[in-house]
């Protein structure tokens, strides 16, 4: 295998008569920031669901770190290093901000049910370490002051940020962001752009970004793939895409009009 972290080979999924994603080829390197764009219903979220194991492809293969991911469940893929956020925020509604992140830390901990009951020394130290780890993450992303608040009571932008923090708590190698800028005002968007760059550098991970806001995508992505009706119609640097007539027609044109 080559050095790519994630590789999609002719990945297809059909829902009844609808081909939501069609023979998609896509590669992401270990520290790359790649964009995935396309009009509504183009299959972007479906591509995420395929990569994270929510759906199994009807055709083609997905490799993560050189291993095929067929038949792996979402939680197993997260364990291997794929984390994601959701287009419609899916925080744990009955938990605090702190506990949302804490729940995500569980997967790398050796402590299971027996320790939770016996509560020996190792367990207590472990729980303390988790607390520190969660607080650190929250502080980095300026959510520390909300730690005790219910997750769903946060302002919208903060909820999106918390979802990113929660995904990072699983210690991913690849982070999938599904429209993180949706519903944000221009200032928040600018901040988000900085945040994504910061995450990529600080945590040394790859990011695949689905986003409708062209400024965000073109501003930070090194490479962008364009989907239309499930088919990849173009791929290249932001500059290349701006000059591509197919892309302009399918997507950018709609905005320019």
């Amino acid at each position: 295998m080559n050095a790519s972290l994630l590789q999609l080979e002719k990945v297809t999924i059909r829902f009844g008569g609808l081909t939501a994603v069609c023979e998609l080829d896509l590669q992401i390197g270990a520290h790359e920031l790649v964009g995935l764009i396309g009009p509504n219903g183009a299959g972007k979220t479906t591509a995420f669901n395929l990569i994270t194991g929510v759906y199994q492809p009807t055709g083609g293969t997905i490799f993560f770190q050189g291993q095929p991911t067929a038949n792996l469940k979402p939680h197993q893929l997260t364990r291997r290093g794929i984390a994601r956020t959701f287009q419609n925020i899916r925080l744990f509604a009955s938990m605090s901000v702190f506990d949302n992140v804490r729940a995500a830390v569980q997967l790398h901990r050796p402590h299971g049910i027996r320790d939770a009951l016996w509560r020996g020394r190792g367990f207590r130290d472990g729980e303390k370490a988790v607390e520190t780890q969660v607080m650190e993450l929250l502080e980095i992303f300026k959510l520390g002051r909300f730690r005790a608040a219910n997750a769903r009571s946060l302002p919208y932008g903060e909820q999106r940020r918390l979802e990113i923090v929660r995904a990072l708590a699983t210690q991913p190698k690849l982070l999938l962001l599904d429209e993180p800028a949706a519903g944000m005002n221009p200032t928040e968007k600018l901040e988000l752009t900085r945040l994504i760059r910061f995450i990529k550098d600080k945590f040394q991970i790859a990011v695949l970004l689905v986003e409708h806001d062209m400024q965000v995508v073109m501003g930070i992505c090194e490479r962008v793939a364009v989907l239309d009706y499930g088919v990849k119609i173009a791929e290249g640097t932001p500059a290349e895409l701006r000059a591509n007539p197919k892309v302009i027609e399918a997507y950018l044109g709609a905005e320019a009009r």
Binding site: P74, H75, T78, F86, R90, F92, M95, A103, Q106, L107
Partner: peptide, 14 residues
Amino acid sequence: IAVHDDEVAAGAMG
């Protein structure tokens, strides 16, 4: 509790 709140999100958190 994560499973109670949202199974899909719980799966995505490992």
